[in-house]
Every structure is written in C-alpha cells, then in structure tokens.
Amino acid sequence: MSQDARNEIRAFITAKFPRMTFTDEQDIFALGFVNSLFAMELVMFIEKAFGTRIPNEELNLDNFRTVARMADLVRRQQSAATAR
C-alpha cells in the first residue's frame, strides 16, 4: 500500500508541476515550486483519493513536505480507521 500511495501522490504532484523532478524524500516546499495553497490541494487530494479524513492535529506542513511523509500520513490514517 505504501508504494501505491507514493505513486498516486507523486503522480498528482507531477501533473501539477510537470517540469519538476524530485524524489520521494525531497522537501517539495524547499524546492520552491510548492506553496501553502498547494498544501491545501494536497490535503483534499489525499482525503479523496484514499478515502480518509485528516484530523486537525495532523494538518501541519511537516506531514506534507515529502511524498514519503504523505504516504506515511495516509498509512497512519487508514490504520486508525480500521482500528475503530
């Protein structure tokens, strides 16, 4: 699942910024092509694509800096949902 999540997240970002190249571990905000407005798009995309809600305490920029961190966030939210 984690690799699938990474692939979907990377594809979403690449569709918005086709000329940028980045790895799953690179900070997309530090690279300078992503801003806080796009972070909200990422939140909406993740919630819709993975059928999860991101709680307020998880809505911090650090969870969205890299593809790897976003995939971890998805995994945590899906694990929490199945544990309920």
Rank of each mutant, 00 (worst) to 15 (best):
Ala49Phe: 03
Pro55Ala: 13
Arg6Met: 13
Glu57Pro: 02
Ala11Phe: 04
Ala83Val: 08
Arg65Thr: 15
Glu8Tyr: 05
Phe45Asp: 11
Phe45Val: 03
Pro18Asp: 12
Gln3Asn: 12
Ser79Gly: 14
Glu57Lys: 09
Met44Pro: 01
Ile28Asp: 09
Thr21Asp: 09
Val74Leu: 14
Ser2Asp: 12
Gln3Arg: 13
Gln3Phe: 07
Ile9Thr: 08
Lys16Leu: 06
Thr52Ile: 15
Arg69Gln: 14
Val74Ala: 14
Ala5Glu: 07
Glu25Ala: 09
Arg19Gln: 09
Leu37Trp: 06
Phe33Ala: 09
Leu61Trp: 02
Asn7Asp: 12
Ala11Ser: 14
Asp72Glu: 10
Arg75Gly: 06
Ala83Glu: 11
Glu57Phe: 07
Asp62Pro: 00
Glu47Phe: 06
Phe45Thr: 03
Val67Ala: 06
Phe12Ala: 00
Ala5Lys: 00
Thr82Arg: 08
Ile54Met: 06
Ala5His: 11
Ala83Tyr: 05
Ala39Glu: 06
Asp24Pro: 04
Leu37Val: 11
Val43Glu: 06
Thr21His: 08
Ser79Thr: 14
Thr82Pro: 00
Asn63Leu: 07
Asn35Cys: 05
Met70Ala: 08
Met44Ala: 10
Lys16Trp: 10
Lys16Tyr: 08
Ala71Thr: 07
Asn56Glu: 14
Ala81Val: 04
Gln3Cys: 04
Phe29Ser: 12
Gln3Val: 09
Thr66Asn: 01
Ile28His: 06
Asp24Phe: 05
Ala11Leu: 08
Ala15Arg: 13
Ala30Val: 10
Val67Leu: 03
Ile46Lys: 01
Met70Thr: 15
Gln78Tyr: 02
Gln78Met: 13
Asn60Lys: 14
Leu61Ala: 10
Glu8Asp: 10
Phe33Ser: 08
Ala80His: 05
Met70Asn: 11
Asn35Gln: 09
Ala68His: 14
Phe45Cys: 04
Phe29Ile: 11
Gln26Ile: 05
Lys48Ala: 15
Thr21Arg: 11
Thr21Pro: 00
